[in-house]
């Protein structure tokens, strides 16, 4: 079990899997795991562990 955007969620093995299965567009998000911002170039190397608190902030257009 992990926490995704503050809610309990089934665990994923990797950040890649989490992003792909939830249809996140990588160019439109910022990812924080346990309070640490993840560099975009590191997304595909990040493993997810039980209990991780993951925030994926999605941006929409307009300004």
């Amino acid at each position: 079990m992990i926490y995704l955007n503050g809610k309990e969620h089934t665990a994923y093995a990797t950040l890649t899997e989490l992003l792909d299965k939830n249809d996140y567009k990588r160019t439109r998000i910022a990812v924080e795991i346990n309070g640490r911002i993840i560099k975009r170039s590191d997304y595909d190397q990040i493993e997810i562990h039980d209990g991780d608190r993951i925030e994926v902030v999605s941006f929409v257009g307009g300004g």
Binding site: T27, R28, V57, G61
Partner: peptide, 18 residues
Amino acid sequence: EAFDKAENKAMLVNTLLT
């Protein structure tokens, strides 16, 4: 951050935070 396009918003936020 006061950009228009979502990609630019995400780019700036990620760059400044890291």
